[in-house]
Measured scan of single mutants.
Amino acid sequence: NQESVVAAVLIPINTALTVGMMTTRVVSPTGAPAEDIPRLISMQVNQVVPMGTTLMPDMVKGYAP
């Protein structure tokens, strides 16, 4: 099972992602793949992402898996 990126903390809208904001988990439906964490760092979210929420590609500005 592939791990997806999950918010480790509450991420406010327009916040640039840091490694400490993200964790990985096997979830369904799958979100952004765990191996993309290095690409996701410094990208901004376009909505509030509550802690424990799977990071879906459409939540991150300019990100395409």
Rank of each mutant, 00 (worst) to 15 (best):
D58P: 04
V60A: 02
I37K: 01
T18L: 09
A7F: 08
V5W: 06
M51D: 06
R39W: 09
V49C: 01
D36R: 01
P29H: 00
P29W: 02
P65E: 10
D58Y: 15
M59C: 03
V26G: 05
I41L: 10
P33L: 09
M43R: 11
A34P: 10
N14K: 03
M51S: 11
T24S: 14
G52L: 07
T15V: 09
V48R: 13
M59D: 01
G20H: 14
T18S: 10
T54P: 04
Q47P: 00
E35Y: 14
G52N: 07
L17E: 05
I13S: 11
Q44A: 07
P38N: 10
G62R: 00
V45W: 03
K61A: 12
P33R: 07
G62D: 12
N46I: 10
E35C: 13
T23F: 09
I11P: 01
V48K: 13
G20W: 13
N46D: 05
R25S: 09
Q44L: 11
A8E: 01
V60G: 03
V5A: 02
M51V: 10
N46F: 08
D58R: 13
T54N: 04
P50K: 10
R39D: 06
A34R: 05
I41A: 02
V5E: 01
G52I: 07
A16Y: 15
I13P: 10
M51G: 05
V27T: 11
T15C: 09
T30S: 14
T23K: 08
M56R: 07
A32E: 05
K61H: 13
P12R: 09
A34N: 04
A16L: 13
Y63Q: 04
D36Y: 04
T54F: 00
I13N: 13
M21W: 06
T30P: 15
A8W: 07
M22L: 15
V9R: 06
S4M: 06
K61W: 11
V48C: 15
M43V: 05
I41D: 01
P57H: 05
S4P: 02
T18G: 06
S28I: 13
Y63N: 04
P29Y: 01
V27D: 06
T53V: 11
A16H: 14
V27I: 05
L17R: 06
V19Q: 15
